[in-house]
Design a protein around this nucleic acid. Structure first.
Lengths: 110, 110
DNA sequence: AAAATACTTCGAGAGATATCGAAATAACTC
DNA sequence: GAGTTATTTCGATATCTCTCGAAGTATTTT
């Protein structure tokens, strides 16, 4: 039932996205990617800038990717990473929705 | 209380707040609290609604509290928990700031 | 085809988190 | 002051996450 990813995140999706951002290393990876803009960065370049090497980097990127926060596309032997802006925005909305509490309890009290 | 304080979160603070929200149980605790409004809920009531008992609940609340996401105030033997709206808002802003990337790197770089 | 580059997978050890029950504290009631 | 209620602390176990190096895969270069 989660067709509208941009609008509505389910609790479990939101939680895993938050968990993914809940590490300084990963949060700073995302930030670095955001600063890099639409072109993104290769895994190697990203690792250099964030000073995270090889397998550890792969590990973190996998988590970010699984949480839908970044996207990766392979070109030759290089993998370009970009931020999934839509998802980040949805996450921010999720917080606002919870923060601004419309006192209407019809959200999803399952 | 100053609700519209523009709190700027540091990376480490943001990361620990995200980490705190990065658990379905805790995220749902926060949601429950938000729905409860300004009055908040007692620890016991919260635990009942979220179906989390005793020590486990305390553990999660401690994490949320340490991350600045909830506040607790003792009245007699009951502890009332409320959402720290300001902090949640700041967190949402943090995401937007990172998401909408003004290409100006002077914000939170060190 | 061999070497170099870019990245991932595997396996392991250390450290952090989650969950629980039992015992402890603290406040209120009788 | 004994009992009840609300919540925390302690201790133990289970599970997850982080990090690393070594070996593996895929792709390009020579």
């Amino acid at each position: 039932m989660k067709r509208f990813e941009t609008t509505t995140l389910e609790l479990s999706e939101a939680a895993s996205a938050f968990a993914a951002l809940g590490s300084e290393q990963r949060l700073s990876l995302v930030q670095t990617l955001v600063r890099a803009g639409f072109a993104g960065l290769s895994v190697g370049e990203l690792g250099e800038r964030a000073d995270i090497g090889g397998s550890t980097l792969t590990h973190h990127l996998k988590i970010l990717s699984a949480a839908g926060l970044i996207e990766q596309s392979k070109e030759g032997r290089v993998i370009a990473c970009t931020v999934a802006y839509t998802h980040l925005e949805a996450l921010s909305n999720y917080l606002l929705r919870n923060c601004c509490a419309d006192t209407d309890d019809g959200q999803n009290n399952g």
